[in-house]
Design a protein around this nucleic acid. Structure first.
Length: 511
RNA sequence: GCGGGUGUAGCUCAAUGGUAGAGCACCUGCCUUCCAAGCAGGACACGUGGGUUCGAUUCCCAUCACCCGCUCCA
C-alpha cells in the first residue's frame, strides 16, 4: 500500500465514521482522535477479543482496572518522572538536536595575536555522556587554534545546562564554526501533569499515567492477597494512557492519548526465559489469527545495546504500515526491576512466598504491552481493499468477522409486499446477539456496497420467495457469493459463520 | 521543535479581487425482484483570526490542523 492509499484510508475512516479528528469543529487538536460509530465498535471488538483470549479463557490470568491518576511516587519509582524528560538543544544552523545534559562546554583562553595583553575565549560545545568523553573533540579544535595563537593560557569545562543564560550565546555548536547558533535548553517532558484538588500548587502535582503497567505492579500485593492466584500468573489491564509526544504523526499511530492492552506475567526467576519465549510467540500468533497476514508482521528482537538496562530480552511485534514498519506491541523481559523499585520506594514487601517449594522470592516479569489504537489502525490498513468488479472499483474492508463493527445487515429487496416488515423482524432477532444494521433505501446493490465499506461480512436479503417458503439469501462480503437459508434460525447461522464453525458454501445458489 | 507542502459541500476536485460549481455520497417522493439503476425535488462548503481594499474564498501576515522530510520516541 502506498502513501496515497493511506490518504484513502483516512478519508474512508472519516466518511464512514470510523475515526474523526478530535474536536474538529474547533480546528482540531494535534495528537488526539475520536472514534465514530463504526470505529468504536471495531476498537471495542479488538479489546474484547484480547480480553476474551487473554483473561476469560485462561486460568492463569486475572484482570484489573486501575485509576489513571495515581500517587506521583509511583512515577518516581518507575523512573518516569526522572527519566521521561529530556532537556534538548537545537542548533539553528544545522538543525541538529542535542540532549542538553550531554552537551559540555570547554572554555579555552588564548593570547590575542596582535595584542598579547588581550585574551580571546573560545567556548566549544562537545557531546558526550561525561566531560571526559567530550574532551577529545574540544581538544582537537583547540589544537587547531593553537597553531595560530600559540598554546592556550588555560581551559575549563562546564555543562551547557549550568551556563548562565547570557553565556549560552558564546557557545560554538559541535557542528558549526560560529557562536550563537544554539537555542536555550528546552525540556521535552512526555508526562502529562495535572493537579489533584482545586488549588494548583507544587504540593498537589499528579500525572496522567504514561502506561497502564505501573498500576498493575502497584496492585501486585492486593491481587496476591485475594488468594486466588498462584505463580505463574498474569494480570491484564486495558485502558487509556497519555504521553506528551513531541511530534504526533501518522494518523492515530502516535497519539498523545491512547489505549493500551497490557499484561504483566509474574513467574519464578528460573522460568522467566521460557515464559518470555511463550508470550513472544503467543502474541504474534494472536494478530495472525485475527487477520493480519504474517508476511506484513515481523517479530524483531532488540539488539543488546537497544535494551533498557534492566531488561535481558525484548521483542517488538511490528506491522508494515503504509508509512513504514512500526511497532504494534512490545514483549519485554523486565526481570524483577519493577517490583524491586516499588519495594524500595513504598517500603512494602512485594516478594512472593511459594507454598510448594517453601521459597520466598521476587517474581520476574514478562510484559506483553500492546497498543489498542495501533492494533485498530493495523487491522484497518490490512482490511482496506479496492477490488475491481465489472470495471468498477469496489471499496471493501475485509475485516475479520470477529472484529467487524457490524456482523450482519438486513435488507428487504424492495419496499413493499411486507418485505420491510419481515426484514425488520429478522433484524430485531439478530440484534439480540450481534450488531445488525437494517437498510431499505435505494437499490439493493448500493446497500451491499455500503456495507462493504463498513466491513460487514454478511448481508441478508428478504425477497419474494421469503414470503412463500421463509428462506432468505445470505451474501458473503469477500466472495460475493449468495445462498439461501431458512430464516427461522438465521442468528445461529450467522453465529456459526462468524466463529468459523461453518463456512461459505462453494456453490452460488442465488436466484 | 525545524524545513517544505496542503487547507473550498460528507468525500474527490474546479473556478474567481465583485455573494462559489461539478461528480459521487446524503434526504424526500415516484419507480424498481439481487451488486453503487432512472426521473423529479432538497439540504450542505471557502480551517480560524487579523491586515490591505469600496469590496478578500482569492493578495499579505499570524494561527490551527493535516501530509512529506528531519528530530524525538525512557
Amino acid at each position: 500500500m502506498s502513501s496515497l492509499d493511506m490518504e484513502k484510508l483516512v478519508s474512508l475512516c472519516k466518511r464512514r465514521g470510523f475515526i474523526f479528528p478530535s474536536s474538529e469543529i474547533y480546528g482540531g487538536i494535534g495528537g488526539f482522535w475520536d472514534y465514530g460509530p463504526l470505529g468504536v465498535e471495531l476498537k471495542r471488538n479488538i479489546k474484547d477479543a484480547w480480553w476474551h483470549d487473554i483473561v476469560r479463557t485462561r486460568d492463569d490470568m486475572v484482570g484489573l482496572d486501575c485509576s489513571i491518576i495515581m500517587n506521583p511516587r509511583v512515577w518516581e519509582a518507575s523512573g518516569h518522572v526522572g527519566g521521561f524528560s529530556d532537556p534538548l538543544v537545537d542548533c539553528k544552523k544545522t538543525k541538529e538536536r542535542y540532549r542538553a545534559d550531554q552537551l559540555w562546554v570547554f572554555i579555552y583562553r588564548f593570547n590575542a595575536k596582535d595584542d598579547p595583553g588581550k585574551h580571546l575565549e573560545f567556548w566549544w560545545g562537545s557531546l558526550g555522556g561525561a566531560p571526559e568523553e567530550a574532551r577529545k573533540a574540544a581538544e582537537a579544535r583547540a589544537a587547531k587554534v593553537a597553531k595560530k595563537l600559540g598554546q592556550p593560557l588555560d581551559s575549563s569545562v562546564t555543562g551547557y545546562m549550568q551556563l548562565a543564560p547570557e553565556d549560552r550565546d558564546k557557545v560554538i555548536g559541535p557542528s558549526v564554526d560560529e557562536a550563537g547558533t544554539l537555542t536555550e535548553p528546552r525540556s521535552f517532558n512526555l508526562m502529562f501533569k495535572t493537579f489533584v484538588g482545586a488549588l494548583e500548587s507544587e504540593s498537589n502535582v499528579a500525572y496522567l499515567r504514561p502506561e497502564t503497567a505501573q498500576g498493575i505492579f502497584a496492585n501486585f500485593k492486593n491481587v496476591c492477597d485475594t488468594g486466588r492466584v498462584k505463580i505463574p500468573f498474569g494480570i491484564a489491564q486495558v485502558g487509556k494512557s497519555f504521553r506528551n509526544e513531541i511530534n504526533p504523526r501518522n494518523f492515530t499511530f502516535r497519539s498523545r492519548e491512547f489505549e493500551q492492552m497490557e499484561i504483566e506475567f509474574f513467574c519464578k526467576p528460573e522460568d522467566a526465559k521460557e515464559w518470555y519465549a511463550y508470550w513472544r510467540k503467543a502474541r504474534f500468533d494472536w494478530y495472525v489469527k485475527l487477520g493480519l497476514r504474517s508476511e506484513k508482521l515481523r517479530l524483531r528482537d532488540h539488539d543488546p545495546d537497544e535494551l533498557a538496562f534492566y531488561s535481558t530480552a525484548t521483542a517488538d511485534i511490528e506491522y508494515a504500515f503504509p508509512f513504514g514498519i512500526s511497532e504494534l506491541e512490545g514483549i519485554a523481559h523486565r526481570g524483577d526491576y519493577d517490583l524491586t523499585q516499588h519495594m524500595k520506594f513504598s517500603g512494602k514487601d512485594l516478594t512472593y512466598f511459594d507454598e510448594e517449594s517453601k521459597a520466598r522470592f521476587t517474581p520476574h516479569v514478562i510484559e506483553p504491552s500492546a497498543g489498542a489504537d495501533r492494533a485498530t489502525l493495523a487491522f484497518l490498513c490490512e482490511a482496506f481493499h479496492e477490488d475491481v468488479v465489472e470495471n468498477e472499483t469496489r471499496t471493501v474492508m475485509k475485516l475479520h468477522p470477529r472484529l467487524a463493527p457490524i456482523k450482519a445487515a438486513v435488507f428487504p429487496l424492495v419496499k413493499r409486499d411486507g418485505m420491510p416488515e419481515k426484514a425488520m423482524s429478522i433484524h430485531k432477532c439478530i440484534q439480540q446477539k450481534f450488531a445488525s444494521f437494517y437498510d431499505q433505501t435505494g437499490a439493493v446493490g448500493r446497500r451491499y456496497r455500503r456495507q462493504d465499506e463498513a466491513g460487514t461480512p454478511y448481508c441478508i436479503t428478504i425477497d419474494g420467495q421469503t414470503l412463500t417458503d421463509d428462506t432468505v439469501t445470505i451474501r458473503d462480503r469477500d466472495s460475493l457469493k449468495q445462498w439461501r437459508v431458512p430464516s427461522a434460525n438465521i442468528d445461529t447461522i450467522i453465529e456459526d459463520l462468524i466463529t468459523g464453525k461453518t463456512t461459505v458454501p462453494g456453490a452460488d445458489s442465488a436466484n
